[in-house]
């Protein structure tokens, strides 16, 4: 019997790392979106509940960058799935 512990360790490390990274970045994107929506509702972007909310433009940039990063990961995932791309 031959067990490739290195490969097993790689699967573990890469899987956990990538999952956490993608979800955290996506969560930050969602956070940006939530701030944007909160800002829009209050008109001026500075609500009592979110003192650090910042300008809506900042929230929008944060959301856009985060979702772009996630989209790049998804594109890489599709690249890995489809053998014709290799």
């Amino acid at each position: 019997m031959h067990l490739d512990w290195t490969a097993l360790g790689q699967v573990t490390a890469v899987s956990i790392g990538v999952t956490v990274a993608v979800v955290v970045v996506f969560a930050l994107g969602v956070l940006g979106l939530a701030r944007l929506e909160a800002a829009r509702e209050h008109g001026d972007g500075t609500s009592a509940r979110e003192p650090r909310g910042g300008a809506p433009a900042l929230a929008l940039t944060q959301a856009a960058l985060c979702f772009l990063a996630c989209a790049a990961v998804v594109a890489y995932g599709i690249y890995l799935i489809v053998p014709q791309f290799h």
């Binding site: 956990i16 955290v24 994107g29 956070l31 939530a34 909160a38």
Partner: peptide, 29 residues
């Protein structure tokens, strides 16, 4: 492995979006 990854990711996702508006968060995810 999948369970540990999902556990950590879920924990962090809830920590990060803790204070944000719940409806926006739900919709985004």
């Amino acid at each position: 492995v999948a369970g540990v990854a999902a556990l950590l990711a879920t924990y962090l996702a809830y920590r990060l979006t803790d204070r944000a508006r719940k409806d926006s968060v739900t919709k985004g995810f």
